[in-house]
Design a binder for these strands. Sequence first.
DNA 1: ATATAGATTGACGTAACGTCAAGGTCAACA
DNA 2: TGTTGACCTTGACGTTACGTCAATCTATAT
Lengths: 256, 256
Amino acid sequence: MAIEITIQKLAKLSGVSTRTLRYYDDIGLLKPARVNSSSYRIYGQAEVDLLQQILFYRELGFKLEVIKEMVTAEDFDYKRALAEHHEALMMKRQQLDVMITTVNKTIDAMNGGVQMSNKEKFEGFKNNMIADNEQQYGQEIRLNYGDGTVDASNKKVQQMTELQYEEVQALEQEVKDLLKLAMADGQADSEIAQRAADTHKRWLMYYWPQYSKEAHAGLAEMYVADERFTSYYDIEQPGIAKLLRDAILIYTGKSN
Amino acid sequence: MAIEITIQKLAKLSGVSTRTLRYYDDIGLLKPARVNSSSYRIYGQAEVDLLQQILFYRELGFKLEVIKEMVTAEDFDYKRALAEHHEALMMKRQQLDVMITTVNKTIDAMNGGVQMSNKEKFEGFKNNMIADNEQQYGQEIRLNYGDGTVDASNKKVQQMTELQYEEVQALEQEVKDLLKLAMADGQADSEIAQRAADTHKRWLMYYWPQYSKEAHAGLAEMYVADERFTSYYDIEQPGIAKLLRDAILIYTGKSN
DNA sequence: ATATAGATTGACGTAACGTCAAGGTCAACA
DNA sequence: TGTTGACCTTGACGTTACGTCAATCTATAT
């Protein structure tokens, strides 16, 4: 006959805690098949199966409330939900990427011996925060919406665009910073130089439809062969373009 | 003399809410310089500076408790904290990547799939994914070094499935083909050129979490403004990059 | 004098449980 | 039969970083 399992058995079976199962009962996500005379929760095969689905979607990062809809609503629009969820995940990753980039830069700044005072460190931030504070005290703060170039109709889009822009800028700066550090010993296979190549790739992928090692290596050659590119990097310090090329060649395995 | 600002001024100045400032006071993260006779919080220059540091680290994703240590402890080990934090962020991203991959696979399964019951669907997922994941993570990742072949790492980085990857490549080829055709008369507002722009958008949406006209137009400008990108498209025929840019500007309504 | 803006301290809500706490239930063993 | 230990139950508080009222007091402008 039908299987009947208690809460702990189900917990061990599925790898979640009994607390979780009680919680799912509370919020109506997964009710036991029945309760016995002592109010013990008894689960059957159907509940085991349902729990599998629930845990599957939980792993995808869906909220329990959404999962509840999924498994109860008869005509749930999975495609739309998945598409939206995908978008949300991509955004999260975008934000994470910005954080990671900034953390990297901060680490580099600390290691690079560019001893910045706390004050200097936060200069940039500060400028954003208090522009001409003396004048602005007491009067209303007006926000800068630019000259209508930004489509304000969708705040979410706006934020994303800004984030993307920020990340591109950050990546480009990171490449330059790393290269400057790598110039210390000039070794293209140093860890720093290789990180520069990797960051350069990440930056590149914002613009290039398909990344390929060949194209990346080809571009690297151009950095040295074509004066227009060379000057772009060498303007701060001669030899940077060449170092970047060599680093990329090693990175892409095209160095020979 | 020293500046004295109330809670709301500081809030507007720094872009956080007054609630946040009160909360920071509560948890001892940022105490006002003093309170006046009516218990109003009064902040000075030192607090403004401190808040900047706090917000800087908050943007990096640090928890407030850690930030509190940072700004209070005299001998805080920033390097270690940053390294650990970096580690944690990378793990988060890893988890996100797995989620994104799985969501993509699920979408694929639903699109390509016959009508399945929820149960069947789930079974299918489970099996497919286990197999797939074993392939993906169970064994070492082998990269394609063959000449002319596209590096598989791009696919990996974008967490795409085979299906999606093929679609992206098809779109990219289509953009190029359409552009070549459009070069016949070189009109950016021709139907063909506009179709190229539209295809370019569809392609783009595989890479960007959010499409926005502004970002699209911005990217188009880059294609021409920065020689490093121009070469990607112009390599087959000079003028293609510019045509694409103009087409996109018209497409996005940013042409003037 | 009064309207309005701005300040204060509570206090509840959030997501998905972890972690006790106090107290019933069941099978087994002395 | 009594007891022990494993297992069950229902609370209820803690977590993170605030958002959002609510009730009440203070400051400023007309």
